[in-house]
Amino acid sequence: MEDLFELAKSGEVTPAELGYYFPAEFAPQDSMWLSWPHKEESWPGKIEKIFAPYSQFVKAVANAQKVNINVGSEEMKDFATKHLEAAGANLKNVSFHQFPTNDAWCRDHGPAFLINPKAEQKKVIVKWNYNAWGDKYPPYDLDNQIPIRIAEYLGIPYFKPGIIMEGGSVEFNGKGTLLTSTACLLNKNRNPHLNQSQIEKYLCDYYGVQNILWLADGIIGDDTDGHIDDITRFVNEDTVVTVVEENKSDENHEILAENLEFLKKMRLENGKQLNIVELPMPSPVIWEDQRLPASYANFYIGNEVVVVPTFRDKNDQKALDILADCFKGRKVIGIDSTDIIWGLGSFHCLSQQEPAVK
């Protein structure tokens, strides 16, 4: 055990070499990790409106599994507790941790949990570097420490690849395939010293995958430069849902049509074609003359629920019905994300799963 801590720190061995891999989100989870929202600049003029839907999100997941929430102070913990109580959340399943953050986007600044059921140490963390999507929103020094804080709290080793990577930029089927986008991972504001093949090696070494599939651009309004979790998501080992825009005059139409064509040509790690389920887009969500990255693909898969952002739109129910058909063993819950999306992300962006392992 101590040897693994030393190996991880030294960088002499990669998680993949030790048999670790990143499970699919639909695999069993120990908990969900969050960082309580507090940065007013992320929701200018609207932050007070997000706590109710955010708390409904916590409630939906905490009914059936643990939820860990990073907070910056006792005052923030009390504030969060008040909102969660008002929402009727099961506080017995909610734990707070005094791990201060700069912002709320735990998908990107949180730890990447890898597992190896056959190892003595069954769970490890990869601590990627984080620069707030290409240094767009400094400071991010506290966010950058969150994976280490959580690893130390859990008493598990952590690996430090030393490059920028965000959880929202990668999607997994848990069997060796990773889906991402060139718009984000090849953007020069992340790792300008690395080419595509070098980035692929990092993905294989530190996520334990063997097959990498590349889509192109992300949706309009996405300040992350094309995160995959707004576009295409695995719902089982060989099936993805991918958003499409039927309105040909919409800016997203061509982008998403191109990505759909890419998906049709892709092959999984076993050589099979992807099963593709098309998911509609909501009508444009505009606030203060800015188009926001509203997408039904930004859902969170919990042990018993799938929490889906909705936007007071005619396509809300259609999207929920499609996802309910994809997740027959889980309850699909739509929560109004019209205010949350002003922060340019939704439920998946705000959360990070911790897998269970026996």
Rank of each mutant, 00 (worst) to 15 (best):
H193W: 13
I164C: 01
Q210C: 04
I212G: 03
T180Y: 12
A216G: 00
L215Q: 09
N173D: 14
G174K: 03
N189K: 13
I164G: 03
G174L: 03
L215I: 07
V170P: 06
G208N: 05
P157Y: 10
H193A: 13
Y207S: 09
C184L: 05
G176K: 07
P157I: 13
T180F: 13
E200Y: 14
Q210V: 14
P157N: 08
K188D: 14
L203I: 15
N195A: 04
F172Q: 02
N187C: 06
V209Q: 05
V170L: 10
L186N: 12
N195F: 05
E171N: 09
G208M: 03
K201T: 14
Q198S: 14
D217M: 10
T177M: 01
Q196N: 01
C204P: 00
M165I: 06
E171V: 04
M165T: 11
L213C: 04
E166Q: 13
L185N: 14
Q196V: 00
K201N: 15
K160F: 04
N211L: 04
T180A: 12
E200I: 05
T182E: 15
T180C: 14
G218L: 10
T177E: 00
G167K: 05
G208H: 05
K201F: 00
K188W: 00
I219V: 10
I156G: 00
I164A: 01
T177F: 00
K160L: 11
W214T: 01
Q198N: 08
N191M: 03
C184T: 09
G218I: 08
G176A: 06
N211H: 14
L213R: 10
F172V: 00
Q196W: 01
Q196L: 09
I164F: 06
L179M: 10
I163D: 04
I219C: 01
G168S: 04
N195G: 08
N189W: 10
N191A: 01
L186A: 09
I163H: 01
N187T: 06
K188Y: 04
Q198C: 09
N195I: 11
C184E: 10
T180K: 11
D217C: 05
M165E: 12
Q198V: 07
S169R: 06
A216T: 14
P192A: 00
D205P: 12
T182D: 14
Y158I: 01
N189C: 08
I156H: 01
S197F: 10
E171P: 03
N187E: 06
N195Q: 08
T177V: 05
L215S: 07
S181D: 02
N189R: 12
N211G: 01
L203C: 15
Y207D: 00
Y202T: 04
S169V: 02
C204F: 08
I163N: 01
Y207V: 02
I199T: 14
S169M: 03
P161E: 04
N211Q: 07
G208T: 08
V170H: 10
F172Y: 01
Q198E: 15
A183Q: 15
G167S: 02
G174D: 02
I163A: 08
